[in-house]
């Protein structure tokens, strides 16, 4: 049987004191319990240094906070046969703690956007996040990703991402502060243009 302890009936300064003995992963878990716990964790003023979003056939969200890093993983349905089955990221989803594969559930259903907003607000991260696309990311609809993530600071598209998807990424996330493309998705167009230019010059 779980021991019961009425934490939230203690004075707020005592609760904050208790929270100061917890690591960011525990704080994230307790912040999901209620609005009060979320506000108390936020009041600690812990600041995430960086928030990255890695999109492959799953989405990973590593968060670095004052020398501590934890990462959440979403849509890790590796048992499903069809790898490219498209995913609706507007639906509620549980998070998995990367490396330990421990599920983290919110007390009310969260979709990916809610998770991202929650982490950004609890760990005082106001900047646009950094986003990296890898092979397999094509199962996520780009418009929904844009709506969930908003503007990005750093955009990275790996060379193994298809040209069609790559162009869609560039169309939607069109104003990053930094951009890295594994390869130029417009290569083919350039070649055609060069080819037609050379033909006309002849």
């Amino acid at each position: 049987m779980q021991p019961i302890f009425p934490l939230f009936r203690l004075p707020e300064n005592v609760i904050v004191h208790v929270l100061q003995y917890m690591d960011p992963k525990q704080l994230l878990i307790i912040s999901l319990v209620s609005t009060k716990s979320k506000n108390l964790v936020t009041s600690l003023g812990l600041r995430a240094r960086n928030v990255y979003i890695y999109i492959s056939r799953e989405i990973s969200l590593p968060v670095a906070i004052e020398g501590y890093i934890f990462a959440l993983k979403f849509y890790d349905d590796s048992n499903i046969q069809n790898e490219l089955l498209s995913v609706d990221i507007t639906l509620p989803v549980d998070a998995l703690l990367l490396f330990v594969n421990e599920a983290i559930k919110s007390s009310t259903p969260f979709n990916f956007s809610d998770w991202l907003d929650h982490i950004k607000s609890v760990f005082c991260y106001a900047k646009p996040p950094n986003i990296k696309f890898y092979r397999g990311c094509e199962r996520f609809e780009i418009q929904s990703l844009k709506e969930a993530i908003g503007n990005v600071d750093f955009l990275h598209v790996d060379s193994e991402v298809t040209d069609v998807y790559n162009k869609e990424v560039l169309k939607h996330f069109n104003a990053p502060n930094k951009l890295y493309l594994g390869r130029n998705p417009f290569d083919e167009t350039c070649e055609i243009q060069l080819h037609s230019l050379s033909k006309t010059s002849k």
Partner: peptide, 12 residues
Amino acid sequence: KNTQEMIKVITL
């Protein structure tokens, strides 16, 4: 503790 266990433990 996970969120559900936490809810039980702190009797919210």
